[in-house]
């Protein structure tokens, strides 16, 4: 794991191919990063699921199962985790989707709902012109829903 000192206590960048077979290995890497940042199992599980849902969404709807690149930047400092997820598929702000009806009567439609529910802040960066950039934030000591 690449660690950097200075402004960030912990910093790691991930470059992923848009392939669902890569998700399990990525989740392991992210869990290791979160453990190093001091997240307990429950909070770590929330972050991993939130990020995994976004990645699945990009693979499934952004790249439509085809090839593509996903870049993820994770930084932890002062009790706050910031994760930025960048892809180069057609621009689409997932935060504009209406909230799903709960419990869902039909399969699907829960991905971005879970990402928003499990993180403390989620923002879509309109300034990124080459694709999509989503910023996720989680405070380590704030109790989450899981």
């Amino acid at each position: 794991m690449a660690l950097q000192t200075g402004m960030c206590l912990l910093h790691k960048q991930f470059a992923l191919d848009a392939a669902t077979a890569r998700l399990a290995g990525f989740r392991e890497d992210l869990r290791a990063f979160l453990a190093q940042a001091g997240f307990d199992e429950k909070s770590s599980g929330e972050v991993v699921l939130a990020v995994d849902e976004r990645l699945t969404n990009i693979i499934r709807h952004g790249y439509r199962g085809g090839p593509g690149k996903i870049e993820l930047d994770a930084r932890f400092s002062d009790g706050s985790l910031k994760i930025s997820i960048k892809d180069y598929s057609a621009k689409f702000n997932p935060l504009n989707q209406p909230a799903p009806k709960l419990p869902p009567e039909n399969p699907g439609g829960l991905g971005i709902f879970l990402t928003r529910k499990l993180m403390d802040e989620v923002t879509y960066d309109e300034s990124f012109r080459s694709g999509n950039l989503l910023h996720l934030k989680k405070y380590k000591d704030k109790r989450g829903p899981l």
Partner: peptide, 8 residues
């Protein structure tokens, strides 16, 4: 571990 695809 389960995600929304598993729920679906």
């Amino acid at each position: 571990y389960i995600d929304s695809s598993g729920l679906a």
